[in-house]
């Protein structure tokens, strides 16, 4: 059994009578099973899970905004390094081929390869960069205790929608598989960008762990 912080209560039938409901702003509904919870006044550091389906509803952490923004900035810089430095180097029979992610994307010229290159570039570079920018734009002012920027809601909505399509971590596993596939015919060494990319994956996972949608939407209001 999970343990639930005492402050998160579900709403019972007696309370749900028309006049007895707590103010709507104190309630939160689980997005995945619609169960009502009373979310008023959670203590700092509390993690609230849905009482029925168990998903994480709220993490009350007032320092998280600043951490999310600094991790997003770090990830952004690492991404720029990851696309421009040499990523992999291939050596076979005196021939030598060193590629950066940018070169890899622009090297294709025929039909299918080009489409594939666009898709890969989108999933591993463009969408992650767009998502990071949206997060920095939307949460940046909140981290400094300022009022949200214009369009901050749109930006954060975009960041949320892009999450499943940012596939940097899957790309890293793909690289590992590719390295082993060519190991038989050539020597492949990893360049600095490979490590920048791996670091970027870790930073992104850490950042996404810290994002509490409920608190951010509340603060953006």
């Amino acid at each position: 059994m999970r343990s639930f912080p005492a402050a998160v209560k579900t709403i019972s039938e007696e309370e749900a009578l028309p006049n007895a409901l707590p103010p709507l702003r104190d309630l939160v509904a689980c997005p995945q099973c619609d169960t009502l919870h009373n979310a008023a006044r959670l203590p700092q550091g509390a993690r609230a899970h849905c009482k029925r389906c168990g998903i994480r509803l709220i993490t009350e952490n007032r320092t998280a905004f600043a951490q999310v923004v600094s991790l997003a900035l770090t990830a952004f810089v690492m991404m720029l390094a990851a696309v421009s430095f040499p990523f992999l180097e291939l050596n076979v029979a005196g021939h030598h081929n060193s590629i950066s992610v940018l070169q890899a994307i622009t090297a294709f010229n025929d039909g299918i390869a080009l489409l594939l290159a666009f898709a890969v570039a989108g999933f591993i570079v463009l969408l992650p960069l767009l998502r990071l920018s949206a997060i920095i734009y939307a949460i940046g002012p909140l981290a400094r205790g300022q009022a949200p920027r214009r369009g901050a809601k749109t930006a954060f909505g975009l960041a949320e929608a892009l999450q499943p399509w940012s596939m940097a971590e899957i790309f890293i596993v793909g690289v590992t598989v590719a390295l082993i596939k060519v190991a038989g015919i050539a020597t492949v060494t990893t360049g600095p960008a490979f490590w920048a990319f791996s670091g970027l994956v870790l930073v992104t996972i850490l950042k996404d762990q810290l994002i509490c949608r409920f608190s951010i939407w509340q603060a953006l209001e």
Binding site: V92, A113, G174
Partner: peptide, 27 residues
């Protein structure tokens, strides 16, 4: 999303293994 691994493998191999006459890989 993890099913995308093989697509990325193909993309990486085709970018990396382009050695004129010796060997080339295309998607």
């Amino acid at each position: 999303r993890w099913s995308m691994i093989d697509v990325f493998v193909v993309a990486i191999l085709s970018a990396l293994v382009q050695l004129d006459t010796i060997a080339s890989i295309n998607p």
